[in-house]
Each structure stands twice: as C-alpha cells, then as structure tokens.
Write a protein that binds this DNA or RNA. Structure first.
Lengths: 215, 215
DNA sequence: GTCTATAAATGGATAGAC
DNA sequence: GTCTATCCATTTATAGAC
C-alpha cells in the first residue's frame, strides 16, 4: 500500500478503496440481502477496517444505496447496447427477446432484483431507480423498435406502449419468478431461447400483419 | 412447521395464543421483512412474552416458516375457488384474468411475494411452496380451462402448458413489478380490468379460432 | 486515511418464579 | 403455560493512536 503525501493521496488511492468496498458490498448484499449483511463482514470481505468504510460512506444504508445505484447504471448500460434498427420483426424480436430473457435470468440480475424488491418499502427511491434502469429501459428499447416497424408497415400496433408491456410480460412468462423462488434452477441457453421465440410467436400472431390484430 | 398443540390444558387457549402470535408474525414479517423484524417487536405486537413465542415455535426461522406456510395455504385456497367450466373463452378469460391480476396486485400478495422472494436463497423450500400455491395454482386452473375450451373447439392451442405460462405473463405484464418496486402505487380496479382484458385480447388473437395460431 | 479497540444498543434465546 | 429478568453474541457506529 503506497501511501502518497497528503496532497496526492486523493484520486487513485481513494477510488481504489471505494471500488474495493463496493465490490465487497456487491458480493455480500447480493448474496445475503441487506439485513443479513453486517458491516463487520463487509469490512472483512473488502480487506479494510470498518472505520475506513465509514470514512467513505455515511453508513450501511448509504453504502447499500450507492451499490444499488451503481448496479442500476450497469444494468441500464447493458440494455442500452441492444439495438435492431432496420431489421424485420421476424429476426429482430426473437434476438432481442432472447437477449433480454437471458439477462433477466442471469444470477446477477436475479440477485439485485431480490434485494431491491425486498427493500423497496424501506428505500422507495431505489425501487424506482431499479425499475427505470431495468424494465423501463427494456420497454423504451422495444417500443422504439416497434414504432419503427409500424412505420415501415411491418406490424399493426394500435397502442405501442401497451403492446410493449405485453411483449415484456410474454417474454418473462413465469420463468423469472421460478428462478427467483428456486435459486438452484438454471435454465439452459437453449431453453431460454425456446421460451423467447415462443413469446415472440404469440406477439406476432396478435400484432403481425397477417394476424387479425388485438383490441 | 407449526408446533402441534400439546395434549390439552385448554386447547382453545393455546390455539388462540398461536393464532395471536401468527397474526403478529403476519403483520411484522410482511411489513418489514424477516431481517428487520425482531422477536422483541413480535412479542410486543402479539401481546405475549418472548418466552411464550419460544414455547410454541422453535425459533425465529421456524415461526417465519410457519407463517409463510399458512399464507400459502390461504393463497392456494383463494385461487382454487375460481372456476369457469363451460363458459366461452371470450367471457371466462377476461373474468379469470381480472380476478388473478387483482389478487396479484393486492397489498397482501405483494407483501408475501416480497419476503418470500427475498428469503428464497435462505429458505429454499418456502420458495417452492409459494410458487406452487401461487403461480402454479393459477396455471393449473387456467390450463384446465384451456383444455376444456380446446376440446369444445373454441381455441386452438398446440401446447396448453406453454400457452398457460404465456397467458400468465401477459396478465402480469409489468404491473406487478411496478407495484413491487413502488409500493405507493395502487392501480384502480378499472385499470386492472383494462390490463387484464388487453392481455386476453392478445391471447385470443394468437390462440382463438379466428387467428392464425402461433408456433 | 487507516487501523485497533471500544462504546452503546439490540439481537436471539433461555432460566427460574409462579 | 406464561411471565420477568437476564445471558451472551452481535450489531452499528465512533474515538483515538499512528
């Protein structure tokens, strides 16, 4: 641990410490939840003392909020990369659906989902941030694509916002809930793709040009 | 697993005590979660001493397990009452969908959902029990109805089990997640019905006789 | 800034009187 | 069976040395 003189300590050393603390917070909070994680265990896991944690964060709740915010930013970033401009619904939607479902069922996403849902009554802002970064980000991506496809005459969607929430529900099915409730369950990529494609089939049967259309 | 009511000093008195303890457990665990609920608070809420709680339950975890089991039985009972034998899909499915969605969004169902999902890694059996009593029970009801409707030639459903999970996802949409993450949200009955009917519209567009059929 | 040591409070669980 | 009083481990958070 190379300690610099007071003036130069700041940037590098401090950000490495906060990164290590946040790494430990991620590991412990996501694995055991907020209530079952102690500051002692966090300090041990991060390899620093409790006092150091309190030097960087205002307390357990603030550290938890910082972690969740960071994870939400990461989630939002992952979702924002997905795009399908110009592709036809028959090829774009199965791919997007598969990507989103695989993300939803990843151990990391399931873990943060569990803790944020559990603590939503106690940390109301965090629940909203998580919804925006996850479900709302997916909706924005999908709805933008649907509107393009409608403009090209490839889909018939009277209410794109509603149709997007329906598509999300169709994709999620009950797989996410099963994985949340039975953590040992780990659907294979093939299985995930099968469900995603089946979801898109139903969606296109309802909103594709050949169908009768819903509502 | 709840303790057996011992032989009998006053069977009524004992069962009243366990009922009061379980009532307190319901109020506290569902409102604040497992970790944030202390045995002291439970005893105060139940109007008994901690020692009395330990006389009836083996500890905090056992009390929590007993409560969740009881709530799951209640949930399963509520779902089992719904039936639609003989009705046409156009009238039966909107009603069933509306009932199920209203149940999913009730404060009670949201609260037990939160705690069970949060503690599923720690209490694996409880997660499975909750899934059976909730989602699986709904699926069983809906799938039974779908098979009847298919037999009557009112629907075309190649894979009823898959179609049922899709219908459930369609009904849930993202409303349940929004309510889980933003506890102050309380959709009106009219709004719930609107979403339920829209979900059924899409389902029937895909699986109704007039549609092209999916997969 | 970082550590060791500790403060102050609360946690789950139990002993013993009645 | 039920209560009061208590044990002991653990909790969050801080004080003070370096």
């Amino acid at each position: 641990m190379p300690q610099q003189a007071a003036a130069a300590t700041s940037a590098g050393g401090q950000s490495r410490k906060t990164a290590r603390i946040l790494d430990a917070a991620r590991e412990m909070f996501l694995a055991h939840g907020f209530g079952a994680t102690s500051m002692d265990a966090l300090a041990r896991c991060a390899g620093v003392s409790k006092a150091t944690i309190y030097a960087y964060f205002d307390g357990k709740e603030a550290l938890f909020a910082a972690l969740v915010s960071e994870e939400c930013a990461r989630l939002d970033g992952e979702i924002a990369t997905s795009s399908a401009t110009g592709e036809s619904p028959g090829t774009a939607l199965p791919r997007l659906a598969g990507q989103f479902l695989a993300l939803l069922l990843s151990p990391w996403a399931l873990a943060i989902h569990r803790v944020v849902v559990a603590e939503a009554p106690r940390f109301p802002e965090l629940g909203i941030v998580f919804y925006r970064a996850g479900c709302a980000a997916m909706k924005a991506r999908l709805e933008a694509y649907l509107r393009q496809a409608v403009a090209r005459g490839e889909l018939v969607v009277p209410d794109p916002a509603l149709a997007t929430t329906q598509l999300i529900g169709l994709i999620r099915g009950d797989l996410q809930l099963r994985c949340l409730l039975e953590p040992s369950l780990r659907p294979s990529p093939a299985e995930i793709d099968r469900y995603a494609c089946a979801a898109v089939d139903v969606f296109l049967a309802a909103y594709g040009k050949h169908g009768t259309g819903a509502a």
